[in-house]
Structures are given as structure tokens and as C-alpha cells.
């Protein structure tokens, strides 16, 4: 089931102490992610986009403001918010199926049921063949497919992706984008996708939020109309990105 995410007055600083205030990383930011929406957070490195994602995931503690998922405040990491990292973060001691089953254990299924569901989840990301392979035996794109299957297997309401395709070659990346688009359309999850690649943001998302500056803040917020790529929109977003 998909749920809305509401970010209200979120500010984050790192390295603060009693005597010295924290160095601000992110200025007060408001952002509403409607249930089932696909939003890209676009910005250069160091603009605080990963910080926003980390705060929604529950790993980054805000210095001000709050985040709610369907009205429930985020106080820490939880399985309602699935996470996909750039470095895959697969467990190298488990096979692809084992990695997915790790996520399924929470649901208290019988072993056979867990196995069936894990194989189905891998088939859904196009990796039925590699189920018994270890991550080190899989290519980067295949590893990221497993990571997607694992994140989705935990049945999250929100899917958070932190530059998930940044380490992939161009061809693999566009295939993975297609896969993610399809998964989103099928599941209707609320997706927050962090990237520094303007074309990736425009190709994937319904909405592109441009972050920039130091400390980071929202520079622009564009709806992306469905259909073929719009060069005018790309120029506009690029201009906002450059302004940061």
C-alpha cells in the first residue's frame, strides 16, 4: 500500500555540540510527497539531497522540523520505508534468493512460502536465473536488481533510492530505469529518488525537485508531463541547477 510522506520545516546540521551550533547542511525544507507519487530530488553533490533521503529513512536526525508517513512521525528506520543504496548493500554471504529472504523473515512465513515469494520477487526484476548466485558472481546491474527485489519484498509503503544507478554503465542504467518505472506503475508505491543526473530525473519522475546551495534548499519544483522528453523543460531545470 502506498502512503503520503510529508516533510515539514526539516533542517539538518552535522557536528554540533553544546557550545557550538551544528554546521547547517539543509535549510528549513518543506516537501509533500502524495501517495503513489514519483519524485526525483536533483542536485549537485553536497546539496543535502541524500540528507533529506536519510532523514525520511530515519538514519539522519533532524535539528528541526518533522517527517510523517501517513501522519505517523518518523522516529527511526523501519520496514515501511524501503531503501536502495548506490553501493547495493547486498549481503555477500547470502545468495540473491537469501538476500530477498532476509527481508521476508519479518513477515513470519513458512520456509517454503518464503522461498516461493523470494523467487517470485527475483523473477519480477528479471533475475529468475541468478537466484542461487552470490552477489560477487553478479554484475552491478544484476546486484541492483536484487537490491530492488529485496527492498520491495519487505512490502514497504515508500521506496527511497539514493543514486541507485550511479555506478552503472549507460545501457544498464537505462534498462534499470525502465525496470523501476514499471515496478512503480505496478505497485503504486510512493517513490523518492535522489540523483545528480538531470536526464535521469526527467526520464523517471513525475516531479523534479531541484536542491542546491550550501546549506541546501529547494531551488525549484517542476512537474514533468508524461510523454516524450521536453527540451524546454530540460533547459529550465538545467538553469535552476546551475543557479545553485
Amino acid at each position: 500500500m502506498s502512503r503520503p510522506v510529508r516533510i515539514e520545516g526539516l533542517a539538518v546540521g552535522y557536528g554540533g555540540s553544546r557550545r557550538r551550533p551544528a554546521a547547517p547542511v539543509l535549510e528549513r525544507t518543506d516537501l509533500d510527497l502524495p501517495a503513489g507519487s514519483f519524485t526525483a530530488l536533483l542536485g549537485p553533490s553536497g546539496c543535502g539531497k541524500s540528507t533529506v533521503l536519510g532523514a525520511v529513512a530515519g538514519f539522519v536526525r533532524p535539528t528541526a522540523g518533522r517527517i510523517t508517513v501517513a501522519g505517523v512521525p518518523v522516529t527511526g528506520p523501519g520496514p515501511d520505508r524501503g531503501l536502495v543504496f548506490q553501493q547495493y548493500a547486498l549481503f555477500p554471504w547470502r545468495t540473491a534468493r537469501g538476500n530477498v529472504e532476509f527481508a521476508l523473515k519479518r513477515l513470519g512465513l513458512r520456509r517454503a512460502e518464503r522461498r516461493t515469494r523470494a523467487l517470485a520477487a527475483l523473477a519480477e526484476v528479471g533475475l529468475a536465473e541468478g537466484a542461487e548466485k552470490y552477489p560477487a558472481q553478479l554484475s552491478g546491474g544484476m546486484q541492483q536488481r536484487v537490491a530492488l527485489a529485496r527492498a520491495l519484498a519487505a512490502e514497504p509503503d515508500v521506496l527511497l533510492l539514493d543514486e541507485p544507478f550511479g555506478a552503472l554503465d549507460a545501457l544498464t542504467r537505462s534498462r534499470m530505469q525502465e525496470l523501476l518505472r514499471g515496478l512503480w506503475q505496478r505497485t503504486g508505491l510512493t517513490v523518492l529518488f535522489v540523483t545528480h543526473d538531470i536526464d535521469e530525473a526527467l526520464a523517471l519522475a513525475e516531479r523534479v525537485v531541484v536542491l542546491g546551495g550550501s546549506p541546501g534548499r529547494v531551488l525549484a519544483d517542476h512537474a514533468v508531463p508524461p510523454g516524450p522528453p521536453d527540451p524546454g523543460l530540460r533547459e529550465l531545470v538545467a538553469a535552476h541547477l546551475a543557479a545553485g
Binding site: P79, G82, F85, A89, K105, A154
Partner: peptide, 22 residues
Amino acid sequence: PVTHLRAARSLGAPLHRRFAEV
């Protein structure tokens, strides 16, 4: 890697599973 432990937490694994399985 901290991402292993974070992945486990975001997948809802409680402390004893994070120790034994990660």
C-alpha cells in the same frame, strides 16, 4: 560496511537478527 547494518534495520531486522545474520 555501515550500509549492511542500515539495510538490515530498514528491512525491519531486530537487534538479535542484525547481530546473528549481519
